[in-house]
């Protein structure tokens, strides 16, 4: 059965989603605290209106103040929930072929990154600090072939994801090595080292060169 577009748009036909995660909930904590405080103040004010001696709406300054207060409260509510929606829309998925890192907001940002397992050179787990160790979150620094260094921040349970990524990467490497005995493929005979036995290197099979790339993934 094909897995094409099964769990996310752009999933390849033989690609399995092994796990996925969002940022650790600690990223939402400052916003949640400020919003709860704001709502508590507003609630206290609203349910104790009778205790305040407010001027009438005839005063122009007070009119402007009321309108501004209503706009500000509406803005705060929308801003908080937009950040929550952004939190839920930003996902990192780990499949047997790649890591897909999606960062998006409703209107402004739409960032997708795909890191193939065979490109990964090594992975570092960084979990420095008291809170990071108590609340179990940290950074995964992925060193890929080439000058690039990719950092996944606020990864929840980084130990688990670190071990998982290493395991998948090793499986992928072993699979490729089993499928592609390079020296046999290149026709090199080690027994006598005779150049006459050396055949020109044939191009790799397409499926071993790279997993099929989904065309419409970046246009999602």
């Amino acid at each position: 059965m094909s897995n094409r577009d099964l769990h996310f748009r752009g999933q390849m036909h033989d690609e399995d989603v092994i796990t996925f995660f969002r940022d650790h909930w600690v990223v939402l904590l400052p916003r949640v605290i400020s919003f709860v405080l704001f709502m508590a103040v507003m609630g206290l004010f609203f349910f104790n209106l009778a205790r305040f001696k407010l001027p009438s709406l005839d005063a122009i300054f007070f009119r402007a103040l009321v309108v501004l207060a209503i706009i500000a409260t509406g803005f705060m509510i929308h801003r908080f929930f937009l950040s929550v929606i952004e939190y839920f829309l930003s996902v990192t998925m780990i499949t047997n072929y790649r890591i897909i890192h999606v960062r998006r907001t409703l209107y402004i940002m739409n960032h997708k990154e795909s890191i193939y397992m065979r490109r990964i050179q090594d992975i570092q787990k960084q979990q420095d600090g008291l809170f990071k160790n108590i609340l179990r979150f940290g950074e995964l620094v992925i060193n890929v072939f080439g000058p690039d260094l990719i950092t996944l921040t606020t990864v929840p349970n980084p130990e688990y994801h670190f071990r998982l990524l290493n395991r998948i990467r090793n499986q992928q490497l072993n699979k490729n090595q089993q499928k592609l005995p390079f020296r046999e493929h290149a026709g090199i005979d080690d027994s006598n080292g005779n150049e006459e036995n050396t055949r020109p290197i044939e191009p790799l099979e397409p499926e071993l060169e790279a997993p099929p790339v989904e065309e419409d993934f970046h246009s999602v």
Partner: peptide, 12 residues
Amino acid sequence: DFRLTESCYTML
């Protein structure tokens, strides 16, 4: 775009 909500490891 995602049908991943069945078992999120880090759901809030």
